[in-house]
Structures are given as C-alpha cells and as structure tokens.
Nucleic acid binder design. Structure first.
Length: 563
RNA sequence: UGCCCUGUGGUGUAAUUGGCAACACGCCUGACUCUGGAUCAGGAAAGUCUAGGUUCGACCCCUAGCAGGGCAGCCA
C-alpha cells in the first residue's frame, strides 16, 4: 500500500489506548524504538472471532510500527492440549494474514529455562515446596475479604526446597502431592499474590515434550518468562488478567530479567452467539453443530467456511476498535463488514431457491437467445458472461403473489415485471394443482423489451431473477441464521435451550444458472437479490455441490411487510 | 462485603489531552437504479451514570455515591 491518495491521508488514523501507550514509549525511547507483540493461544480449542480481534490488534500494531509479531503456543497444560488444535490455530492465523515470519514458538520449548529460573527463586528464598493438598491450599488462601494464613511449609530451608523440587521434577511424587509456590504475601488483598503456585505435578504426556516433564508451570509463572525470553515489548491480553499483572511484574522483577509491559483490553462479545471455548466445545461434543468449523460457529474456521473473507475480518476489527470497557457488539457490525467486502468482490449470478415454473406464451419453442450479463456492477474488470434465455423458465416462488400486499413490485396476475437480463413479461394465467397450489405461470412477453436493446419504452417497477429450465443445474443450498434466539445466551440458566431451531435451513432443489456448475470453494458469489454464497468446502471435497449462505443482502422489502 | 477495572445516542468507538460531543453500524426520509442490493442527498437519536466541587469554561481534574465487570483452579 503506497498509493496514498489525498483522501486517504485526510482520514484520521484509527488509534486506541494501546497505540497511544506505544506512541508514548516510542517518544521516550522506552524499548529503544522496538515494538514486538505476540499472540499466545493455548492449543486447547479452535480460535474464534474474539481471538481474531486479538490477532488483528497485535499483528496490526507490529505491522504499523515496523515491529515484530510472534505466534506462540502457551502449551503448559498437557491435559487439555492437542496437536489438532495447534494445526488449526496456525492455519487460522495465517488465513487472517498475520505474518509471524515463521516464528511459531512454544512455551514448552522454555520449560528448562523456567525450571532454572524457579531454582533461582528458591535460592533467593522466594519460593518453596508445599505439601498441602488442593483443599488445604484453598483453605489457607483465605477468602476475598479475609486474609489467608501461611503454609506450614513456607519456611523450609533452601536446601530442602531445592532437593524436594528436584525430586518433583524427577517424578518421585504423585499428582497433587506437592507444588512449588512463590513466597509473597498470604494477606495480600489481591488473592493472586497469596503464595501462588508456580509448578504442579502432572504425570501426563505432553503433545510436544512427551514424557520429559511431570511438573508443569502455571500460567502466571510461565507467561511473563515467555514474553521475556522472546523480547516482547507489549504483552497484550484481556481484562481478566488485570489482577494478575502485579504477579507478572513480581516474577520478572524478582528474576531480574527483561520485563515487558502487560496491557489489558476488553475481549469481544457478540450477540446471539457464545464465545467461550468451553461452550463452543460443548456445542461440538454434543453435536449441536457440525463441528468446530460449522458455518454457524463464531470460530474463525466456521466463518471461513461460511464465506467470510480475511478482508472482512480486518474491517470488522477496525470497526469495533479496542477499549477497556466490556461491551456486547451487535452482529450487524460483523454483517456490515462482510457485505461491504463482498459487494465489491463477489461475482453475481442468478439462482432460484424455490422454483416456480414460468412458460412464455408465444416464445418460440426451440429458440434460445444469449444475453450478456454483468459479473459485477461494482467492478468492470470482472467482465461479463452469457445467459441463455428460453421459453421455459423458473422464477422465485416468493416473487409471485396472487393477492399481493400494497407495494409489492413483483409478479402478480395481469401484472408486469422484468426478467433480469431478459424480457418484460406479463402474467396471463395462473395454473394450480388440485390442492390449489400455484404450480405454473403462463406469461406473455414483450419482444420489444429485450435487455440491453434500449428499445423498451416501458418502465416496470420490478426486476426479478430467473433460471432457464432446460439448462439450470440443481444444488443444495444451506441458509444459515443466528445460532441462538437470545442476545446473550451465555447469561441464560440453560443456555443450550436457546438454540435457534432455524439456524440452518437446507434447500434441496435450488436451481442455478449453468455457470455456477463449476463453482469452486474459495470464491464468493452474490446470488442476485438473495444474498452472498460460497461453495461449501467440506461437501465439495465429498463430490457434492453445496452452497453456504454467508449473509443475506440488505432487504428493505421484508422489513416493510413486517411493519 | 476486600482488591482491581469500567461507565459517552439502540450498538461499537472518538473527542487535537480543559474549549459548546464526532465517526461507523443500525433506524427513518427522499433521489437514482434492469439486484427492493449498491450509490447519492438528508433526518431522528446521547448533552457524556448521579450529586457536589475546582475553573471564564469539565466527557476530561477532585470528592462522595451508584451501576456493571473481574478475582478465592494444582485452568489459561
């Protein structure tokens, strides 16, 4: 991007409180002009759009300040982490365009260093091995309003602590038998400082280090060290870690090592969905959805499969901004972000979801006319394609009403409408089956009104889409809607009861214009007048042509009739 | 009944750091249109949680409240 048009320069650059901190640091030379951020996911689930916000924030800062951005797995809990998650996360971060320049790092690579640092703290008398069990530790910790009391083991000698810690590492003890704790202040008003646990014994196989370790560092102990080792300047995390910052600082100060600055921001909440990994996992495990990448999921893989683009994710991140107050973002902002991108880039096509047959009175039986159709009115370089017009067509069932409400601009008995890129037709006869259901319309057409000839003097209020009965291809189309019926499902007692039963509606016999027959995953289409769609990657791999609806077009008509 | 953080239109963010509240979404008009899309032109909508105070002047500073969120995993 170097084509700075005057308007672009005039645009006030989007900033936020974190960038202001960085600006200030740059001014004072706090980090010698360096900016180095990181995204530190735990590989215990798939990434969701909230993570995307964090990635865009961290990477965006690194990019804009000519800094660096690391992808680092915070893999300190072998019981919850899996390689599958590592793989999906790497894929998602790459797709989001966050360039970590090959730096895929792992906390587990620092285990030895962390161990050595722990030994340092023990030697300083700042850490001790504690034999209290989990219940006892909780008891000794006190409550939010009452101070805790010292562990009976907090005064062991350095020598004894060193020996015990070494034996913990060698596997002499069972899970839970001992922990290593920092010796800080059992009466601290900040509970995190009441002799926090640094290491716990977990005899479990780690997805990367296998059985090399049976003691694992806790988050607070590990995280600052990870940041320090990687020379991170600004360690950006979410609000719930605010109370942990004193501990982050304490560890690094006691160690006397390079000390990045932790900064917290508010995580993303989106209405009509859930965002916690635990809940998302539950949706997957209980088969409420088709997997982590179900297009209804707020996961990055789900949104990708749904047809969202990297560009849209970026737009969205810019739109919502970054702040410290927790908020509930309206999904309309997300939908705006994707529509804005797709309007500019999606190829237009015609597809009829619920076909209603139309036959043209007087149109020659065996004649076919080829019409030129624009692929994208927003982008001339997308070119044109040919559409074959004929006597037998299908239109959208909802584009005809026998008894229309006021303001209905589409086909009605005796009324006229234009067929997009075709002729103006007039409904002369409504054919019904024995049950009174409309099964076919017989329409006359105005030969003078052929699209593009400019010979038509008529003006009709409506233009509808169609497909040629002879050439249309069948496809399955999946219409997605919000996953939940309530704005904030997570706040409901039985959150799973608020799943939207209509979050997926499968249309089995949609008819598409022939050009769509060889549509491939990865391209976005606009089915004119109905919405944006993409080929479902999973189904395509299985040999089926299935389209996922990414988002509808803005629809002022259904809004009107709903009053 | 402890500590920490946060309160600006319906929603998400701004406010040159003390100078009569701006942008985007959404909503409502109208224009235009061979997509009821897009685009264009307008509009309604907060007086900044409350009450005091400092000041010529407060969203911004001070005090006291109130409201919301977070914290008592050997999770992150």
């Amino acid at each position: 991007m170097n084509a700075n048009t005057p308007e672009e320069k005039a645009e006030p650059k989007k900033t936020n409180f974190i960038r202001e901190i960085i600006d200030e640091d740059l001014k004072t030379g706090k980090w010698d002009g360096r900016v180095h951020t990181r995204f530190p996911p735990e590989p215990n689930g798939y990434l969701h759009i909230g993570h995307a916000k964090s990635i865009m924030l961290n990477y965006g800062i690194a990019r804009d300040y000519n800094g660096k951005f690391n992808l680092r797995f915070d893999d300190t809990n072998p019981e919850k982490e899996e390689q599958e998650y590592v793989d999906s996360i790497i894929e998602d971060v790459k797709w989001l365009g966050a360039d970590f320049e090959g730096r895929i790092l792992f906390a587990s690579d620092y285990f030895q260093q962390m161990y050595d640092y722990a030994v340092d703290l023990i030697k300083k008398g700042k850490a001790y091995v504690c034999d209290l069990n989990a219940d006892q530790i909780r008891e000794y910790r006190g409550t939010l309003t009452a101070p805790g009391k010292e562990s009976p083991y907090s005064n062991r000698t350095v020598k004894e602590n060193l020996d015990l810690f070494n034996r913990m590492r060698k596997g002499e003890f069972a899970n839970g038998e001992k922990v290593l704790r920092a010796k800080i202040d059992m009466a601290s008003p900040n509970v995190n400082l009441r002799d926090p646990i640094m290491y716990r014994i977990v005899h479990a196989e780690h997805h990367r280090t296998g059985n090399d370790w049976c003691i694992y560092p806790t988050y607070d102990w590990a995280h600052g060290i990870e940041d320090s080792i990687e020379n991170i300047t600004h360690s950006i995390c979410t609000l719930e870690f605010e109370n942990h910052r004193p501990l982050y600082d304490w560890y690094l100060d006691e160690l006397g090592v390079y000390h990045p600055q932790q900064i917290e921001f508010a995580r993303l909440n989106l209405n009509y969905t859930v965002m916690s990994k635990r809940k998302l996992l539950q949706l997957v495990q209980e088969a409420k959805v088709d997997g982590w990448d179900d297009p209804r999921m707020p996961t990055i893989s789900g949104l990708r499969r749904r047809g969202y683009t990297t560009e849209a994710m970026k737009n969205f991140a810019e739109i919502i901004g970054v702040a410290k107050r927790d908020a509930m973002t309206d999904i309309a902002l997300l939908e705006y972000a994707i529509r804005e991108d797709l309007n500019k880039h999606a190829l237009r096509a015609m597809a009829v979801l619920k076909p209603l047959k139309v036959s043209l009175i007087g149109y020659p039986e065996d004649t076919e006319e080829v019409m030129d159709a624009v692929n994208n009115p927003e982008d001339a370089s997308a070119g044109t394609r040919k559409l074959v017009f004929g006597k037998e067509l299908y239109i959208e069932e909802t584009d005809f009403m026998e008894d229309p409400p006021k303001g209905f601009h589409r086909l009605v008995p005796g009324g006229e409408v234009r067929l997009r890129y075709g002729y103006i037709i007039k409904c002369e006869e409504v054919v019904k089956d024995s049950e009174g259901k409309v099964i076919e319309l017989k329409c006359s057409y105005d030969p003078e009104s052929r699209s593009g000839t400019g010979t038509s003097k008529k003006k009709v209020k409506g233009t509808i889409h169609w497909v040629n009965a002879k050439h249309a291809v069948k496809a399955e189309v999946r219409l997605y809607d919000r996953l939940f019926t309530v704005e904030d499902p997570a706040s409901e007692e039985n959150w799973l009861e608020n799943l939207n039963p209509d979050s997926l509606i499968t249309v089995n016999n949609a008819l598409l214009e022939p050009s769509l027959a060889d549509a491939k995953p990865g391209l976005n289409y606009q089915f004119e007048r109905t919405g944006y769609f993409c080929v479902d990657k999973k189904s395509f791999a299985a040999g089926n042509l299935v389209f996922n609806r990414t988002v509808t077009l803005k629809d002022s008509w259904t809004k009107i009739i709903k009053n």
